[in-house]
Simulated scan of single mutants.
Amino acid sequence: MTLTKADLIQKVYRQHDLTKTQATEVVEAFLGIAKRSLQEGEDLLLSGFGKFNVKQKNSRRGRNPQTGAELLLAPRKVITFKPSGILRNRINGAE
């Protein structure tokens, strides 16, 4: 099962004394801050959850799988996630 943004808003609404509008604003504000930070190349560290990193990938040689033709893949940025030890232990059932 996937947790969607709508599900997250619903959970915030139910667990806190907020209106649905307020819960939506809280979730949207957090996601907006997170997106801007990552777009600016900043890491995002959420204690007890994990760390999102922006990494630069260099250009590299690749191959078109359909034709077999070689091509040059452009440099790009990727986002990686490393869970915290606390989260990893909870997922694995070792609290």
Rank of each mutant, 00 (worst) to 15 (best):
D17V: 09
L3K: 08
R63M: 13
L44R: 06
R76Y: 08
R63N: 03
A94D: 12
T2Y: 06
S47Q: 07
K77L: 11
R63A: 05
L38Q: 00
D43N: 13
L71C: 05
F49S: 12
G93N: 06
I33F: 00
E42W: 10
R63D: 07
T80E: 15
R61K: 15
A94R: 14
A23K: 01
R60H: 09
A34D: 04
P65S: 05
K55T: 04
S37V: 02
T4K: 02
E70W: 04
L71S: 05
G48F: 02
I79D: 13
I91T: 11
F30Q: 00
I79T: 08
T21V: 14
D17E: 11
L46C: 11
G41F: 07
E42G: 05
A29R: 04
L18Q: 01
K11T: 06
L38F: 11
T2R: 11
A29Q: 01
T21Q: 00
T67G: 11
Q56S: 05
P83K: 03
A69E: 14
N53P: 03
E25G: 05
L38S: 08
N89T: 01
G62N: 14
E25A: 10
A29E: 07
L18K: 02
D17L: 10
A23P: 02
Q66G: 02
L38K: 07
K82R: 13
A69K: 14
A94H: 11
E28D: 14
K51D: 05
K5V: 01
T80S: 12
Q10H: 14
E28S: 13
A29F: 09
G50D: 08
F49G: 11
L38A: 00
